[in-house]
């Protein structure tokens, strides 16, 4: 793996925040099954209260807010990573049944189950003899 893959990537796409924090791009795994799309995102520092999932038309946005990560009474003496918010946007190609989207957060990992919508079945139109 290259260095870039291992370090957190700062997001350049998001609009500026009111809070003076950096925004990072969470690393994701996406896999597809017959009837659903699974998205797993690494967002260490978030829990179910601070993560947001939005689906507008076929644009899926996941975002997470992270507390500044400071430890009370302690001072930082050595640092390899930075703490900040997360945001990432995806364009979905398939129709998603938005009523059935399931999202869980466990130990800083967001798991999304996006069930594919039942395709509109082609209807046969019978022509009546006039």
């Amino acid at each position: 793996m290259s260095d870039k893959d291992l370090q957190k990537t700062e997001s350049t796409a998001v609009t500026e925040k009111v809070r003076n924090v950096k925004t990072f791009v969470p690393r994701v795994d996406i896999y597809e099954t017959k009837d659903a799309l699974f998205l797993i995102a690494d967002m260490p520092g978030v829990d179910e209260k601070t993560v947001d999932v939005e689906l507008e038309k076929n644009i899926l946005t996941i975002s997470g807010r992270v507390e500044n990560g400071k430890i009370k009474d302690y001072s930082l003496v050595f640092s390899e990573y930075e703490v900040g918010d997360y945001e990432r946007t995806f364009t979905l190609s398939d129709e998603i049944d938005r009523e059935k989207i399931k999202a869980t957060v466990k130990q800083g990992v967001l798991r999304l189950q996006l069930p594919k919508a039942e395709k509109v079945k082609p209807k046969k139109i019978t022509i009546n003899v006039a």
Binding site: M1, D3, L6, Q7, K8, I40, D42, M43, P44, G45, G69, I71, D73, Y74, S75, L76, V77, F78, S79, E80, Y81, K106, Q107, G108, V109
Partner: peptide, 30 residues
């Protein structure tokens, strides 16, 4: 970066200090 295997530096840590104790934090999702 020059000729260094940076994979050895994964996962990243932060180290915090107070008087006579250290706190090491590491992001290990999931």
């Amino acid at each position: 970066n020059v000729g260094q295997a940076t994979a050895l530096d994964y996962p990243a840590i932060n180290v915090w200090e107070k008087n006579d104790s250290l706190v090491v934090t590491m992001e290990l999702p999931g």
